[in-house]
Computed example of a mutant assay.
Amino acid sequence: MHQTVPAFLQDFLQTTLSSLTPECPEGAISGTLSWKWLGHGAILFYRTNIQSSTNSYIISSGIHGNETAPIEICNQLIQEIAQESISIQGNILFLFGNIEAMRQNKRFIDDDLNRLFSGKHHEMPQSKETMRALEIENIIQRFIHDSSQSSETTFVHLDMHTAIRGSFYKRFAIAPFKIGPMLSKTLVNWMGNAGIEAVLLNAKPAGTFSYFTSQLVNADALTLELGKALPFGENNLEAFSSVTLAIRQLISGGEIPVASMTPKVFKIINELERKTDSDFRLLIDDEVENFTAYPKGTILATDKDYQYCVTHEEERVVFPNRHVKPGLRAGLMVIESDIEPHIAS
């Protein structure tokens, strides 16, 4: 028999922003659908009539607090699952990342949360983000432990973002570094259905959330960049309908249709480095779009005895940002690749 949806699930975003804690940490919505609260911003849904699920999903957003459209999409999906408008298959964890930054409509408070995973928070002075990174890692480890009911269990992690600037490819993904195949054919096909136009293959380990899950449990993980960052209430969620529909298909266990397009593949070949506060110069305009191309010989960044000069016939810049702290990357340099994401890199 269908039960009343708990009030805190009717608007989980507002519950999270208000720091509300459910009176009971778990419960049932119906005879076959249950939920479990794993901490602030973390809610798990699972089927109780399935003895051993082989599919587990992590859908995260708000790792950067001012990237609000994915947060609102997740809130909508949580409502639909709680109302049983979506019949899920498997275990599904929704996670809102940097909650304090979400409250303040900031990218972060002290440190970029998406540089602090895989234990990198231990290397930094304690801050709101280092503590949250540790908390999220613990939530994920608990979810994985509880979901790994058999050796056949597979994990998919979609970490959804929006960008601070425009992009030549409006929606794109970053696949974290792996030895061997970086993504399954199923997820590559999923990207085509979601309207993801390009995918970047990362060439080395990183402190990102998607790298953490990909290494922890060999998850099929993606960082998704889905458009422009806007404040809460200013997003046109209809513009994200292809992504939302593709997520619904994925978590409901439906067959992923053969995509009419596949994303263009780029490999990350280098980073623009910021070494100092005073001497760093990024020779890229703040309004330049992601994937803007530069010809061989172009100098893009300097810092004391460091300079970055384009060495390939053409290189494209992604995520240029002059405002990062010393020691962090100020941009990624990419070139087009003929490597397929499901082939060993």
Rank of each mutant, 00 (worst) to 15 (best):
H2Q: 12
H2P: 00
Q3M: 14
V5S: 10
V5R: 13
V5N: 09
P6G: 08
P6V: 02
F8L: 10
F8R: 09
Q14V: 02
T15L: 11
T15Q: 10
C24F: 08
E26S: 15
S30N: 12
L33Q: 07
S34L: 04
S34C: 13
S34N: 14
W35M: 01
Y46Q: 11
R47M: 05
S52Q: 13
S53V: 00
T54F: 01
S56V: 00
S56M: 03
I59H: 09
G62P: 03
I63T: 15
G65E: 05
N66R: 11
A69P: 01
P70L: 08
Q76T: 14
I78F: 12
Q83R: 15
S85V: 00
S85A: 00
I86A: 03
I86M: 12
I88P: 01
Q89Y: 04
G90A: 06
G90M: 08
G90K: 09
N91A: 10
N91Q: 12
N91Y: 02
I92Q: 05
I92V: 15
L93G: 00
L95D: 01
I99T: 11
R103D: 01
R103P: 01
N105K: 07
K106E: 10
K106M: 14
R107V: 05
D111L: 15
D112Y: 05
N114C: 06
N114P: 04
R115T: 07
R115N: 10
R115W: 06
S118L: 09
H122K: 13
E123R: 11
E123W: 04
P125H: 06
Q126C: 11
S127Y: 05
K128T: 11
I136K: 11
E137H: 08
I139G: 09
I140T: 02
Q149N: 11
S151D: 10
T153F: 05
T154E: 14
T154G: 01
T154D: 00
V156H: 07
I164R: 12
G166W: 01
F168E: 13
K170E: 13
A173P: 03
I179S: 14
P181D: 01
L183A: 11
K185F: 03
L187A: 01
M191V: 02
I196E: 03
E197R: 07
V199I: 15
L200H: 03
P205N: 05
T208W: 05
T208P: 02
F209E: 00
S210R: 05
Y211T: 00
S214Y: 06
Q215D: 12
N218C: 08
A221F: 00
L222E: 05
F232P: 01
E234N: 10
E234R: 11
N235E: 05
N236Y: 04
A239T: 02
S242K: 15
I251M: 14
I251S: 12
S252P: 02
G253Q: 10
E255M: 10
I256H: 07
P257V: 02
M261V: 04
I268D: 01
I268E: 12
I268L: 15
L283H: 15
D286I: 08
D286N: 15
V288W: 01
F291G: 05
P295A: 06
T298F: 08
T298G: 08
I299S: 11
L300E: 06
T302Q: 15
D303R: 09
K304R: 14
T311C: 07
H312F: 12
P326A: 12
M333C: 13
M333H: 02
M333S: 10
I339T: 09
I339K: 13
A344Y: 01
S345H: 13
